[in-house]
């Protein structure tokens, strides 16, 4: 479904992603794990068109989207729930959710809206509050729901657990599991490697802008290098 080949990303002439190739098949949940600054977010941003690829190619459902602009990529069916949540702070919760459906013209948007609020009751409760006033965990729920409002074919999550209390982290992963069960294709970037590997079908391990290992999530979880470096064993 999504296929990245030899992707390179540079900022101001300094390359930080040095030729990454990865694939996500329809219905799959794929995790990208790795240390800080390894280039995971940059890879996702390049897929979404937020930063240009300085080399390589990205294709989605057979179409080349390497140079497509951000809004066109969203319309093609790729949505990202970005690192740090990035809600629209002065807009209300419900306005944030509606922005998620910005590209849609079908009549089911309102139905989806109430479905999202069923899924996250706190959002219904806070629907007319400014999003910036929500707690970190609530904002994460909002960001996830907002991403789903687009009815994406594939949803990219960039560290949804970042900066949240452990209890909240657990509920974020529960949510991701439900989304996965709904059949949404997922590409998940996480520092919390254990939980990510538990959720994912397959995983890639990033180190300094390169993929150094890939395989079934279970296999990576049990690989001694991964265990030592990332799982704290």
């Amino acid at each position: 479904m999504l296929s990245v080949r030899d992707l390179k990303v540079s900022y101001g002439g300094i390359e930080v992603v040095h030729g990454v190739s990865l694939d996500v098949a329809a219905g799959e949940c794929v995790a990208l794990i790795g240390a800080n600054g390894a280039g995971k977010s940059s890879t996702l941003k390049a897929i979404c068109g937020l930063v240009p690829a300085s080399g390589g190619s990205i294709s989605f459902e057979g179409n080349d989207i390497t140079r497509a602009s951000g809004h066109a990529i969203v319309r093609a069916g790729i949505t990202m729930c970005p690192e740090g949540r990035q809600v629209f702070p002065q807009m209300s919760v419900i306005q944030n959710l509606r922005m998620g459906a910005y590209t849609r013209t079908d009549p089911e948007q309102e139905a989806d809206l109430s479905r999202m609020m069923d899924m996250f009751p706190i959002l219904r409760e806070r629907q007319s509050q400014a999003a910036g006033k929500l707690s970190g965990g609530e904002q994460e729920m909002l960001a996830i729901a907002r991403a789903l409002m687009a009815r994406p074919r594939i949803c990219l999550f960039d560290e949804p657990s970042l900066g949240l209390a452990p209890k909240i982290v657990a509920s974020v992963f529960e949510t991701l599991a439900r989304i996965k069960a709904m059949g949404v294709t997922i590409l998940l970037v996480e520092q919390n490697s254990m939980m990510a590997l538990n959720l994912a079908d397959r995983a890639y391990l990033f180190e300094a802008g390169r993929i150094v290992m890939e395989g079934a999530a279970g296999a990576l979880k049990n690989h001694p290098d991964v265990m030592r470096a990332y799982l704290g064993h």
């Binding site: 979404c48 951000g70 970005p82 629209f88 002065q90 907002r146």
Partner: peptide
Amino acid sequence: QAIRAVAENRDAAILMGVN
């Protein structure tokens, strides 16, 4: 709403599909 969204967070607005 897209205008407001761009004003508040340009990148996030792109992720919503705003041109």
